[in-house]
Computed example of a mutant assay.
Amino acid sequence: MEEYNSLGNNRKYKILFVCLGNICRSSAAEGVMKSLVEKAGMSDRFEIDSAGILDYHEGELPDSRMRSHARKRGYELVHRSRPVRTEDFGYFDLIIGMDSQNMADLRRRAPSEEAVRKIVRMTDYCVRYAQADSVPDPYYGGAEGFEYVLDLLEDACAGLLERLA
């Protein structure tokens, strides 16, 4: 991955989080990152969004279980699901996939080598969970899966913000 753009200019740094359907992991990552950026007083320096590989849930709010678990931690997830679009690869500075399949799908869709270099894995920014190699999909699991995903996302988003700040 290329070195990050300097945040010393007036242009916002644009981050896109991506998972399969954009109703659990990527929407939660968007909510966590927005909260961290806001608490750090840097909302004016970032544009944060999320999207899904598939369009099955387009227009839907995040999964109700994810919203519930996130709300307990102080995050309100209000994003409406949308699929990744070709123009996202030119618009965003960083495109962050949650697992190996998301990464492969993003690389396959990337319109150029420059776009491929923008694609990174969410867990690359983990500090406490440095051994994690993916953010697992909690959709078919129980409450502990949603809590673990939020633990990973909080860790990775904090690590990402530290790298970018």
Results as ranks from 00 to 15, higher is better:
residue 1 M to D: 07
residue 2 E to S: 14
residue 2 E to L: 09
residue 5 N to Y: 08
residue 6 S to R: 09
residue 7 L to N: 11
residue 9 N to F: 02
residue 13 Y to Q: 04
residue 15 I to D: 00
residue 18 V to E: 04
residue 18 V to F: 05
residue 21 G to Q: 13
residue 21 G to Y: 10
residue 22 N to G: 02
residue 22 N to C: 01
residue 24 C to K: 14
residue 25 R to L: 01
residue 27 S to I: 01
residue 27 S to R: 13
residue 30 E to A: 01
residue 36 L to V: 04
residue 43 S to G: 09
residue 45 R to G: 00
residue 47 E to N: 00
residue 50 S to L: 01
residue 50 S to G: 05
residue 52 G to H: 11
residue 53 I to T: 15
residue 53 I to S: 14
residue 55 D to M: 12
residue 55 D to W: 11
residue 57 H to L: 05
residue 57 H to T: 08
residue 58 E to P: 04
residue 63 D to Y: 12
residue 64 S to E: 07
residue 64 S to P: 08
residue 70 A to P: 06
residue 71 R to S: 14
residue 72 K to N: 11
residue 80 R to F: 01
residue 81 S to E: 04
residue 82 R to T: 03
residue 83 P to D: 02
residue 85 R to H: 12
residue 95 I to C: 07
residue 97 G to F: 05
residue 98 M to F: 07
residue 98 M to S: 12
residue 101 Q to W: 14
residue 102 N to H: 14
residue 103 M to R: 15
residue 103 M to Q: 13
residue 104 A to T: 10
residue 106 L to F: 04
residue 108 R to A: 12
residue 111 P to G: 12
residue 114 E to Y: 07
residue 114 E to M: 04
residue 115 A to C: 05
residue 115 A to Q: 10
residue 116 V to A: 14
residue 117 R to Y: 05
residue 119 I to M: 06
residue 121 R to M: 10
residue 124 D to K: 10
residue 128 R to F: 01
residue 129 Y to T: 01
residue 130 A to Q: 14
residue 130 A to K: 15
residue 139 Y to M: 12
residue 140 Y to N: 13
residue 143 A to T: 14
residue 145 G to I: 06
residue 149 V to G: 14
residue 149 V to Q: 15
residue 150 L to I: 12
residue 153 L to F: 15
residue 153 L to K: 15
residue 158 A to E: 02
residue 158 A to P: 01
residue 158 A to C: 06
residue 159 G to K: 12
residue 162 E to G: 00
residue 162 E to L: 01
